[in-house]
Design a protein around this nucleic acid. Sequence first.
DNA 1: TATTGTTATACTCTATAACTATA
DNA 2: TATAGTTATAGAGTATAACAATA
Lengths: 163, 163
Amino acid sequence: MSVQPVEPAEHRAGPMLDHLARRMRLRAESVLTPFALRPRHLVALTVLRAEGGISQQALASTLEMDATNIVGLLNHLEAGGLIERRRSATDRRRHVVEITDTGAKRLNEAECALKNAEDEVLAALDPTERESLYELLRRATTGTAATCSEMICPEPPLANESC
Amino acid sequence: MSVQPVEPAEHRAGPMLDHLARRMRLRAESVLTPFALRPRHLVALTVLRAEGGISQQALASTLEMDATNIVGLLNHLEAGGLIERRRSATDRRRHVVEITDTGAKRLNEAECALKNAEDEVLAALDPTERESLYELLRRATTGTAATCSEMICPEPPLANESC
DNA sequence: TATTGTTATACTCTATAACTATA
DNA sequence: TATAGTTATAGAGTATAACAATA
């Protein structure tokens, strides 16, 4: 049974993002072990480098991770001296989380070590295209992450019926 | 303790890919429930649409998923009539997996329904940029996926010490 | 009473090992 | 003997619920 080409689909980036992210993550995993870091730690550190001291809740909503799992994540990073938790002066319930100089340095080193992994996963792209991809990803993440960390993220608008 | 800007880091796309993919996946999850599909199913169907009939092993290596988990994934898709498994004529151990017309149609509809999710996650990008992102992702995934599905994926080369 | 962070725990996902059939 | 697919299952990851401190 051959596949009819159906009408020109409106392709989405989602599945490919998923696929590519998975491939990158699998490779990153092994490269990062000497640093005692996991891919998720790099994601967190990257956010913390971009946005200064934020609460754990804000970090949770930016990363779109459950707040309960942020605890262990930060415990690990704090144990390595890569981040700092201190009580907010204005609201003593809050922990203000900040990346330390050590953390920023370690993040740099880790990013450096990831070069081969990235080269492999993005082998089909030339340097210019990789730069484009990096820039698009940066804009896509930081652009909305900022607004998202301010407030509790609102529910997505209901799916439209058109398309 | 303020963060020293350290020297200009060599930033990697990995963490941002991870972050963006996660955000997309979380939204996709709810949008896809009416289709009885999960994000992973869309990834698989997308690959199967791009590459015709391939073995489960080849699919596993392309998706970089464990072959054991492919079984359940395909069981689900086959139950819905979205893919077909048939024994290879040349090697009766193999299942040749193909997307059906129903599957291709369902994939189309699902992609269509994902528009809002994508609009939300990629809100910071204008249509031209989204098209660029889509194209870069497409090239990055299909470019290497082809070679990867042919042979057993070789181990990544050892990390370089320069950078 | 509501919110931040935390712990305990149940649920889901992923990978390892053992089995069947084909080669 | 080795490989494709499958099943069973243990380990890792993620979310839900209850609690302590603070607002």
